[in-house]
């Protein structure tokens, strides 16, 4: 029983870390820039397919395909931001939702057209396969890798946003756009870079997700739901909130499926409803 609990906690945490990498960019663009970007899931899917192409067609090792996934998703997202999304910043939430959910449909259809509707397999390097034994427990090597990557990303994000001048400019631009411009901050560029960073992380998340949950053209829709739950439970614009919420939801999901199989996949929604009842602004949300 104790052993099962440890494994469930570990697997839940690993799933939570995956949710975190997928969602944290959405938390930033939604919370900081007030832009409802439902296409975030599509950028995650794009990163996944970028990794598939990079490893299978170009023969890149899996680890090298991860930065490729980040860069492809970041670049494509910034192209969309410059040409399309920025026109919607003042357009109201409904317009943003309609436009970006439309993009998810387009992305799903495009992915099905190019790659087909089947799950995309991926080749992992030797050291990420199998299990690692520790204190008598057998932990999935890939899950350990996932947790380490997510912790590194969290550290870099917090450092970057809290302790660099660029981070201070992002926060300033969010606090008061007009004052930031009047003091010489190029708010458009700052937002574009922030947006690219968030989407790049989604792309990285999409690449990391393939081994754990698979990749097919419905990924953008399927995981959008999880992303929205993480962001709303964690609180808009809070990196720490997304981290806590993703961990909690990951563990709840795995534990629910393991211990209460009758509830199955419903557990994650139950946790969301309970938390939002108690804290409508999310765990660490500012508003």
């Amino acid at each position: 029983m104790i052993g099962n609990l440890a494994i469930v906690l570990f697997d839940g945490l690993a799933f939570g870390m995956l949710l975190f990498v997928l969602s944290v960019g959405l938390s930033v663009t939604l919370g900081l820039m007030n832009f409802v970007n439902l296409a975030h899931g599509a950028f995650a899917m794009l990163g996944g397919y970028a990794t598939v192409v990079a490893t299978r067609e170009l023969g890149l090792p899996f680890l090298w395909s991860l930065p490729v996934a980040f860069i492809v998703a970041a670049l494509v997202s910034v192209a969309f931001e410059r040409t399309l999304f920025r026109r919607l910043y003042r357009a109201g939430e409904l317009n943003q939702v309609l436009f970006t959910i439309g993009l998810v449909f387009v992305a799903a259809a495009s992915a099905a057209y190019v790659f087909g509707t089947a799950q995309q397999p991926i080749e992992l390097p030797e050291f990420l396969r199998g299990v690692t034994e520790f204190a008598g427990f057998r932990f999935g090597s890939y899950r350990i890798f996932l947790i380490v990557v997510a912790l590194v990303i969290t550290g870099l994000l917090v450092l970057g946003l809290e302790y660099t001048r660029f981070g201070a400019q992002v926060r300033a631009a969010v606090d008061n756009q007009r004052a930031a411009q009047g003091l010489g901050i190029d708010v458009d560029s700052v937002f574009a870079m922030t947006f690219a960073l968030g989407s790049g992380l989604a792309g990285l998340g999409g690449a990391l997700a393939i081994e754990m949950v698979g990749l097919d053209p419905s990924f953008g829709f399927h995981y959008l739901v999880y992303m929205m739950i993480v962001v709303s439970v964690g609180g808009l614009g809070s990196i720490a909130g997304s981290f806590v919420a993703a961990s909690l939801l990951g563990v709840a999901d795995v534990a629910g499926k393991y211990f209460v199989p009758e509830l199955g996949a419903f557990m994650i929604y139950l946790v969301m409803v309970v938390i939002l009842f108690m804290r409508p602004q999310g765990l660490i949300g500012k508003r």
Partner: peptide, 26 residues
């Protein structure tokens, strides 16, 4: 950036920056 130094009426201090960050960010 060209040299116009505007101090807004509402002061518009950046609330989520420290005093020193307010000074150094721009």
């Amino acid at each position: 950036r060209a040299g116009l130094g505007w101090v807004p009426q509402e002061r518009d201090i950046f609330a989520s920056l420290t005093v020193e960050e307010n000074l150094t960010a721009t």
